[in-house]
Design a protein around this nucleic acid. Sequence first.
RNA 1: GCGCUUGUAGCUCAACUGGAUAGAGUGCCUGACUUCGGAUCAGGAGGUUCUAGGUUCGACUCCUAGCAGGCGCACCA
Length: 577
Amino acid sequence: MNIFDQYLDKIKKILLDLSSNDGLILPDSLDGITAEIPPSKFDSDISTNVAMVLSKINKKSPTDLASVLADALKKNDTLIENISVINPGFINIKFKSIFWTNFVKEIINHAKTFGINTKEKKNNYLIEFVSANPTGPLHVGHCRGAILGDVITNVLSFNKHRVTKEYYVNDYGNQIINFTKSVYFRIREKTFSEPFPSDNEDLYPGDYLIDFAQNIINSNKKMDFEDFNKISGELTALSIEEALKLIKDNLNSLGIKHDNFISEKKLVSNHEVEKVIDFLQKNKFVYKGKIKAPASEDDDNWVEREQLLFRSTDFGDDKDRALQKSDGAWTYFASDVAYHKNKLDRKFDYLINILGADHAGYIKRISSSVDALSNSKGKLICKVSQLVKLIKDKKPFKMSKRKGDYITVDDLINEVGKDATRFIMLNRSSDVELDFDFDNVIEKSKENPLYYVQYCYARIASVFRHLDRDLKSDIQINNYDFSYSNEEIVILKKISEWPKCIDAASNKLEPHRIPTYLYELASLFHSYWNLGKENPEKRFINVEKKITDDKLIFLKMISNVIKSGMDIVGVSTPEKM
RNA sequence: GCGCUUGUAGCUCAACUGGAUAGAGUGCCUGACUUCGGAUCAGGAGGUUCUAGGUUCGACUCCUAGCAGGCGCACCA
């Protein structure tokens, strides 16, 4: 039930009517006409820009046109209390109290579906996110993208789209060889008491490898660890398995579960890379050539080679991109092209990739390949999540990968918990860098938006508790005819924005709008609550049972929306804190 | 140098796919607990939305150019 959509439809209907009967001229598309939330200083519930959009084409002043439209609107709607035309030509509509009574009933009766866009086409999405190398635990850098992807999925699913969550496992290439060697040296450290080589920069230094090594030794008692070359294949598989187990644990503690894990190695061994390159070759997107040294590299160190290149410059990229290494192995990009071909073949309406800021430069390349593979019909959307700056004791602290002492997802969850991590990571637009202040995140005050919103829900729960009612169970509406105060109307207006918030979050893939909205709603609620301190009549539990019952329905409506939103964000709504 | 991205109150950020007098928190100042939960609330002060042009009835939002910060610019992944 989106009242803005409802009234937009009404307005358009009236326009068509006026156009056929009174000579109103309409443009080809009515898309520019909107129904919006008026600024709070106006005593009004919905506003529309219709008169300003149509004034030029009709050669009339916006205000004159607005008066005509306002009259027509008022005439066929008994729920409008008054309608006003305000410069530069907005039409503002104010509803009668009965409108809101109906509204509340509607939401209470359709608690589970309020906010869902019932008009739009439902799509089938594939979202790829996290996809961190299977060489160790997830760290803070992965965390934001992980949560972003998960909550985008939740928003889309809430809006009845179909979404498949996928993790691309980079289990092929040099990094994996180095990683496996590192595990091997840790095994030798244990079985042959040889020290781990500290001078080899290619090896992974992290302590977690010691656990990997021990686990592999324990569960492979018969394995002979003497000669690396004899066991490298098997050991690679075992090492990756260990890493993936750890990563899945990390994701699980963030509350994230992917539907599929797609192995790069399998794509390679199934010859999907060759096939896709054949295809590109036939369509003249691939050639043998040389690329120039990157600007960051000294020309002296750069060796120009002839190699297999993809014409990404045809699609706006800076340079063509290498597909094959000098040793004949595929580049990461080549197998990723195969992976995207694989995605395209599965016929999704949209492909979404969530990338970290440090991979943003990769977008042109991969979207070029999708364009080449799909004749520019691939509908790939890349979403970048900016860096997270960790702050403790008012100071930023950096993590250094070299020493292996970076902050892991585990560290984060242990310190601040899953709920706070999710809510705070999501509270800002993914386009801006995020300050993640440890002291702030665990603080229990208004400064911490998670608690502020949860507290709102807990307060409502406490009212129900006082009356021996259960907030979670359904509430009955019999003769409900609440006469709303101004404070209540303000809250109702905010509630009516919820479908708009979901729409924006869903269409623009901007889930931060949800925590922002919930915070605003909670803020209005806390003000409303405090009215009861000075004026006992404003309290929810009233001597008159009818008033108490009506107010409970009102509170139930608020808690429904809070609960919906918190579920999408993926955090709890405790009834006591 | 090139590409992407950000620039809004002292600080951290919002602003509904171009709407009206740009909003919150924090910090600073002042006030409210015998209460349905003070993890809260009320009030005050704080702005040339980086700059210069352009498009538009209307620009924080779109376009062009510049300035400043961040990220990236491999046969790595």
